[in-house]
Amino acid sequence: MSQRSNARLEAMAAAARRHRRLQAWLPWIVIASTFLLWEAAVEVLGVSTFILPAPTDVWAAAVRWWKPLLDDSLQTLITTLIGFGLAVVAGLLLGVAIGSSTLVYKGLYPLLIAFNSIPKVAVVPVLIVWFGIGVWPAIITAFLISFFPIVVNVATGIATVEPELRDVLRALGAKPSDIIRKVGLPRAMPYFFASLKVAITVAFVGSIIAESVAPNAGIGRLMMVASSRFDVPLVFAGLIVTGIMGIALYWIAEWIERRTTGWATRGQDQNLATGG
């Protein structure tokens, strides 16, 4: 009897291990097969390099131009991170303000939505007039585009604090600032990190848009220059590097999220205490 149940438990554990291993490998398998399929399609259909370069062509271009590719992507990375950092600070502050005060919410929200609906490409020329060609238009575009999701999420997290939770603190004579610090902010953290994952990827979009409209430096400029020279493999190399940077930063945001807001995902593998 117990032997049988042991065997069954072991089988279940083995199945769970296989499942986890598959989960860990699956993204890599999907990426590798995408490239293989792409390579094969280009080969079989005889698409010219000018239309769609094969991954091997892209790789060759990346190896050939590794120095400017590295310099420009580092430039874009720094620009994006500065804009993103500003967006985090401003987004947290404004999100807390909007989330904790109905007046601020009613007053500011329409303006924020209007502002977010403006295509950021249209703003870049204005930024160039204001700040000149250089790194600032890209930083500010990254900031503008990644700021909104952070504000909305932090505000939602704070505004949806359960009234009972707030009453627990109010009944003790807590000041509104105490309630934001002890309940609002910690509760908004899962929302905040969820928004960071969106914000960091769109921040790249922002800085690269600015770099392509006002070519000064960065991976956006590199791609503009490459396409004006009809060097399509290099354009694709730039795109892939951008994607890799996006994934890397997404992972970092996710890692921080897991470390700081484990309570929200309720570690499923932990044993529940029994009794009551």
Binding site: E162, E164, L165, D167, V168, A171, K182, V183, P186, R187, M189, T261, W263, A264
Partner: peptide
């Protein structure tokens, strides 16, 4: 005060 729900802070 104690309420019907435990209203503990989950974090």
């Amino acid at each position: 005060m104690a309420f019907q729900n435990p209203t503990l802070l989950p974090w």
